[in-house]
Design a protein around this nucleic acid. Structure first.
Lengths: 351, 351
DNA sequence: CTGTTAGCGCATTCAA
DNA sequence: TTGAATGCGCTAACAG
């Protein structure tokens, strides 16, 4: 199989024109059953498979989706990518993957240009939004020749978004801790520039009834950086400045694990002395000791939804580039385990 | 930007031939500096970016690498993918991603055909090998028109492989437990069909001096399925049939976490009563309690190496399709934490 | 230094 | 039901 087999080769072998072969390949009706079968046989004999590149050039469509993501190690982006790939593949689309390595990666223009060059039919942009970058992104994207779905970002005019309701997740977590009778609920956030983190914080604030500039907020809040190590440090810092905190909403599960260790070293029992709720529901969360109560997000669904939405825009370009924004939401849920349950224990606990 | 801008548009605007514009775009020398600048200005004014599809059709190269992977949730495949994407992008190559959802996915042919259609320049196949499928894969791949690198598989004639030395990792883990004075070392494996799991088991066997069909092996071994839950069940089963086991090599970190819980419920202290060593060095491993000793594998390097190797074959096709096999190895290392250290403790322990 | 000619592999006209 | 001509956007080879 040195020289790649082309339509012409098949046509010559079959003694017909290339058009006839083309019709067979694409299941067009106007071919006699006899020739159709004969050509099919030759196709598989020669091991011919059509050159998608050439087809794309004619049709102006590549059946390829560009995906721009961010490091797959930090959060549920792997399952998101699985959801995207799975749905795209189901719909007959290929996935062209680009990963940014740093959030302040200055390659935004370069990457968009490259995707234009690659002639992708649509794009899913799933880089964690940062407050200050959002508008630049929205503007660039308004000028692309293909539809773009952005994940997890504040809505701006012209945006097509698919978001997880992080704010609702923050409310779920905080309300649950209140319901369990915890009195003073702190928070360990992600990096303050991240939209997703800020939204979770907002949910926490809303539930506690903290005003936007409540001076008390600072005493209940410490910023982490998503890693277990930062979670450990953050809990130490938090309890140092507010020793009477009896529960913490930790904005992801990895930091929760660090918080477990900090609590352990301080002699604080979970959940008796300190209630903990995480966010993400990573696979390991149910096996922490005690098992972690956390906000579950179905990132596979999120990915699939993003693909569905971008497909709609590809099929019906009129829907794209509308001046108003269009946001779809995925709703998280709370998975209650032991790290936040002290209702039952209170009767038995001697302390 | 409704109608896509083409070379012709730029040429017309500049009053030159398409050829001249092409030369500017591709940084060919034979253009006067004056026209070069003028054309560059027009290019950016019009927002032109070249149609890679058309270029690929001519050159017979797409500068695209196909990556076929497997579910990103089970093991270090995310960091592997990051390593691949990062290196590919550094070398100017795009990444076309396909994920299999189940290991017995029957789409192997279909996927390979599709990648031929997509005209990828090379392929990295990183689906966990299963003993019985390996030969089929090797044979299919011998007939592709582009070079293929397979990850983590036994060598067959004609293969180009990049492997992590799982067997060596198994030896590292087991020898370390012996050095710590543990006497009877069990193992919790992955699914018995997985090559990577089997290799780790071999390393364990070799270090313990177990003969290939040693009847004692069965009493020291239980199969898991990589999940925390299976790890918990496996440790229970293992200690039920061999209560005198005092250390276990667990073939990945997630199962180790399950084993922690099982040990905890049985009242076994780690590392005093039971030494534990995992495999993978996931981010959380250092925050288990106690922190987990584990075999560290640098999957980013593994991915980068795979890209480097496939590039060599693309550049020098003579090296491809050689009858003999060609294997590159990445060597894992042991990260010693507390779950396996009882040397120092022995003096103090009263127990 | 610049333009002309030709063609990559295929699908979309149109004609037979 | 089939075939011939045309061109997608671009670059390689040549000519000027």
């Amino acid at each position: 199989m040195n020289h790649k087999v082309t339509l012409k080769d098949v046509a010559k072998e079959a003694g017909v024109s290339t058009q006839t072969v083309s019709r067979v390949i694409n299941n067009h009706p106007d071919v006699s059953e006899a020739t159709r079968q004969r050509i099919k046989a030759i196709v598989s004999k020669l091991g011919y498979s059509p050159n998608i590149i050439a087809r794309s050039l004619i049709q102006g469509k590549t059946h390829t989706l560009g995906i721009v993501g961010f490091g797959l190690e930090y959060y549920g982006s792997s399952s998101l990518l699985m959801g995207i790939e799975s749905k795209a593949s189901e719909l007959g689309y290929s996935v062209l993957l680009t990963l940014l390595n740093e959030l302040d990666d200055p390659r935004m223009d370069q990457i968009l240009n490259h995707l234009v060059s690659q002639q992708v039919d649509g794009l899913i942009w799933t880089v964690p939004a940062r407050k200050n970058e959002e508008d630049i992104l929205s503007e660039k994207i308004r000028n692309t020749s293909f539809p773009v779905i952005i994940l997890n970002k504040d809505a701006a005019p012209g945006d097509n978004l698919v978001n997880l309701d992080n704010r609702y997740g923050g409310r779920l977590a905080t309300q649950h801790l209140l319901d369990q009778g915890y009195q003073k609920i702190g928070i360990i956030t992600g990096p303050p520039t991240w939209w997703e983190s800020e939204e979770r914080v907002e949910g926490w604030k809303e539930t506690l009834g903290l005003a936007q500039n409540d001076p008390g907020t600072e005493r209940l809040m410490v910023h982490g950086s998503w890693t277990s190590q930062s979670g450990e440090e953050a809990l130490n810092e938090l309890l140092a400045k507010s020793p009477d905190i009896d529960a913490v909403f930790v904005c992801n599960d990895q930091m929760s694990l660090g918080a477990y260790r900090a609590a352990h070293k301080l002699g604080k029992r979970i959940p008796e002395d300190l209630g903990l709720v995480g966010f993400d529901d990573i696979q390991e969360a149910g096996y922490f000791s005690p098992p972690l109560t956390t906000v579950h997000q179905n990132r596979r669904d999120l990915g699939a939804l993003a693909v569905t939405r971008v497909m709609e825009l590809i099929r019906d370009p009129k829907k794209n580039k509308l001046p108003d924004q269009n946001v779809s939401w995925i709703i998280p849920s709370l998975v209650v385990r032991e790290s936040s349950i002290r209702q039952k224990k209170e009767k038995n606990s001697i302390s």
